[in-house]
Write a protein that binds this DNA or RNA. Structure first.
Lengths: 332, 332
DNA sequence: TAGGGTGGCTAGCGCGCGCAAGTGCACGAA
DNA sequence: TTCGTGCACTTGCGCGCGCTAGCCACCCTA
């Protein structure tokens, strides 16, 4: 026989029995069920007894009966979680917690043996950081998940991080740079993001009257960064837009080791405002993303969906911002 | 778009009905229930029908009936998740997935309104990165969670990251440094970790015949790092053991901006081997932790517990390692 | 021919909860 | 007095699943 635990958990039935009332009444009190009138006396008796016995609702039973879990599942991609993302998640988690929801993170493994968790754990909302793979959407639908973000139906809309690359290019152009390169990452897991940021940078360059940006994908080794810099220098490049701060740091280090100065010979701008990037010398000019605001926005998105409120619109506070430091300078 | 087709999920009863057999038989096939003999013909018919209908077991119902969820919950502290931790989690997640378990992360919020998730979501195992707070253990126990890591009963045993600070001090001493300082972080969320690493560094210093290390807790601003360096330089310090790479980076940048050279005037060693730290100039000497091995170890810990196998012992591959780069040099 | 397995299945309970439908009762209006 | 009517509850079903306790051939033995 399946002996679950030594200490059986306290159930609503225990409260009812102990008080000599029906289980339904206990349920009505504990859930504040609308349309049910309970006398104040009974109400306090139930609440007191629940507290005394240390009652905790069993989420599985509740999920089974109501179809709701008060869980928001955030599906993480397998790429490295940077500092910003973590703050973001943390903030969303906090906001959801205040609303009585729990945020959990989960990373699906396409090669794994276990079924994706959303097929079995009935989260109220399932959110992802990027767009869904086709198979995932199908799997989510089959599992009966109806609240999905980003909405697979909607076209790949304006993304919140869309303006970063634009600001990067704009900044270098403002400083007088006309020959600018884009440094991506060779990590295949973030290929989509790299492609997107590159496209945005190129688009901004076009708007400012520049040609397509020369491009290289780095693997964060000194050799890789050094080779790219040598090529670009030979082509007259004076400013580099990096996919993120890690790439910018690799380029900066490699440039210094090649005997160049930053920003004297080469201006380099990163993206994401990693804390470490602001402390090293030279301190990295970069793009800051409002991770806290973004986290709250995500939480609000989930809550509005689950409570049938209209979706919030991204406010101006979610704009990205240029952080000027000492890795970029006017051309000269 | 608001009205989604209300897709009822496929249940085991659907399979049974469609095949004209009993629900129990379906259950026996799908679970490979030991002690039940099922004819190969029926077995394949059930499996085929399950596949055809897209059957997914409902985890809440299973949890309710069996008391097991095949979920391992990793409780994250609210401190910043660094790169290593993320790799660690990722690897553990992968290993658990292969064993048919899902790893979810969850951060409890002491100030929040929602009850801690472990009280309601019946995870098979609940693990934490640090030691438990007293109230948490109580809450876990009350919720009927029996598989808890680290074991609240066991004394705070030898930690896996215990040797890092020792290696840091050892390395500087090997290079001839005798006047060494310890730079911690002022972030209150990681105060415990800072304290622990400082104690280990001091203990190592004692073993090597040094006095207690002078100490400062930095907040990652240039001012804070610069002030500490000025003090230490005045006291004749030539080597700094940093709590982690972020602190080391702040110190290095501040030193350079004060006109000092690293490692010429000051040797600085970090901890954690953050990728960004290896690319900047000077490249940071640091301590590498085997995050992948550690992740697998955590997964194995959880699995052994849930399957009643003996606990694995940490192998030698989990040892930390010194990564010598260019931020440290012999005194002279 | 009876008796005793045993392979292959079914009936049905219970996990803890939400909630629809009902029940008894007091009280005020007709 | 009778009849609503609203209050304060109770009865009881069903969510989907795991699993125990049968049940009924069928075959093998004596």
């Amino acid at each position: 026989m399946p002996q679950t635990t030594k200490t059986r958990r306290v159930t609503a039935a225990d409260i009812a029995r102990s008080l000599g009332i029906s289980r339904a009444t206990v349920g009505f009190v504990l859930n504040d069920t609308p349309g049910q009138t309970i006398s104040p006396a009974t109400r306090t008796r139930v609440l007191d007894e629940a507290a005394r016995l240390g009652y905790r609702p069993h989420i599985a039973a509740r999920a089974l009966a109501s179809g709701r879990t008060r869980i928001v599942m955030l599906v993480l991609p397998d790429w490295p979680l940077d500092f910003n993302l973590r703050r973001n998640i943390e903030e969303a988690s906090l906001a959801l917690d205040e609303a009585g929801y729990a945020l959990i993170t989960y990373t699906p493994h396409p090669t794994g043996r276990a079924r994706p968790l959303w097929e079995t754990l009935q989260a109220d909302v399932v959110m992802a950081m990027t767009t869904w793979a086709p198979g995932q959407v199908e799997s989510l639908r089959a599992a009966g998940v109806t609240r999905i973000f980003p909405d697979p139906e909607a076209p790949p809309a304006a993304e919140w991080h869309e303006e970063g690359p634009v600001l990067q290019v704009q900044h270098l152009v403002d400083l007088g740079h006309r020959s600018i390169a884009f440094a991506g990452s060779a990590d295949p897991r973030i290929a989509d993001l790299v492609t997107m940021r590159r496209a945005l940078a190129n688009s901004a360059a076009g708007d400012l009257g520049l040609d397509q940006l020369p491009t290289a994908d780095l693997d964060l080794t000194d050799a890789s960064a050094g080779a790219a810099i040598a090529d670009w220098r030979a082509a007259g490049v004076t400013g580099i837009v990096a996919y993120n701060d890690d790439v910018a740091a690799a380029l900066t280090g490699a440039a210094l080791r090649l005997g160049l100065t930053v920003p004297g010979d080469l201006s380099i701008i990163g993206h994401d405002d990693t804390p470490l990037a602001s402390t090293f010398e030279p301190r990295l000019t970069t793009i800051r993303v409002d991770t806290v605001g973004l986290g709250r926005f995500f939480a609000e998105l989930a809550l509005s969906s689950v409570e049938d409120r209209p979706e919030p619109t991204a406010g101006p506070e979610l704009r990205v911002a240029l952080i000027e430091r000492t890795s970029t300078a006017p051309i000269g």
